[in-house]
């Protein structure tokens, strides 16, 4: 479903990704690990189509379609979802309103019918309950004054409702206590299906204990330097990036 071919990306004129290639088949969970500044967030922003992340070479294929130059909202409507490392606050706009706007916009782009108010409410309430998100939180302005954990749960809620085909989770585990981590991981696991793939970016083995990946990639210096099964995370935990990368080189 997702195939990244020899991707080179400049940010502010500086080359950050230097020939990244990656293939994620449907239904699989792939993890990307790598040192700070390796280009993990850059990869996720580029996949989501953020302005300023200039692809100078290579391409991104999604279900056989070259989406490299597509606008972000078009990619979202095709099923690419990014859970942000640092979710943004939008004062005055409730989570409820934001979700409704997002779902309706995507439906419009896809040429589908919008949900009616009752269907929408039912869907939101059910998803919120699973993630232990209160009615009150749904009415509060999006992410404003939310704790780190609440923000991440809110990202998971959005994902559950937008039902993407590819979910990119950028450091979903940062700032979460152990209970919240479990909750979010459970939320993700419930969404696992043969039609849905995940790209899980993390620094820690711990998250991968809960969301067990099919493949782990190590990103360093703007490209994938090593791929392997989940035992790779253990090696990293024990020996650190430098040693593992050096051995791979």
């Amino acid at each position: 479903m997702l195939e990244i071919k020899d991707l080179h990306v400049n940010v502010h004129g500086k080359e950050i990704l230097k020939g990244l290639s990656l293939k994620v088949p449907p239904g699989e969970v792939h993890a990307i690990m790598g040192p700070n500044g390796a280009g993990k967030s850059t990869t996720s922003y580029t996949l989501a189509g953020r302005a300023g992340y200039e692809v100078t070479k290579g391409e991104i294929d999604f279900f056989g379609e070259d989406v490299t130059t597509l606008a972000p909202e078009e990619r979202a409507a095709r099923g690419i979802f990014l859970a942000f490392q640092y979710p943004l606050e939008i004062p005055g706009v409730s989570t409820m309103n934001f979700l409704k706007t997002a779902m309706n916009s995507q439906a419009k782009i896809r040429g589908e019918k919008e949900l009616n108010a009752a269907e929408f409410l039912r869907a939101v309430r059910a998803a919120a309950k699973e993630l232990n998100i209160s009615e009150d939180m749904l009415k509060r302005p999006l992410n404003v004054g939310f704790s780190g954990g609440e923000k991440k749960r809110n990202e998971t809620l959005q994902m559950a409702l937008l039902k993407p085909k590819l979910a990119i989770l950028d450091e979903m585990d940062s700032g979460l206590d152990i209970d919240a981590l479990k909750l979010v991981a459970e939320g993700v696991n419930k969404l696992r299906s043969p039609e849905r793939s995940f790209l899980v970016i993390t620094h820690y083995q711990r998250l991968l204990d809960y969301i067990v990946p099919d493949v782990i990639h190590i990103l360093a210096g703007g490209k994938i330097v090593l791929s392997g099964d989940k035992s790779l995370a253990l090696q990293l935990e024990q020996n650190g990036y430098d040693a593992v990368i050096a051995k791979a080189a």
Binding site: A48, P72, A76, A77
Partner: peptide, 9 residues
């Protein structure tokens, strides 16, 4: 960008 990434033009 946060809005765009959710499909909101």
């Amino acid at each position: 960008f946060y809005c765009l990434s959710r499909g909101i033009p």
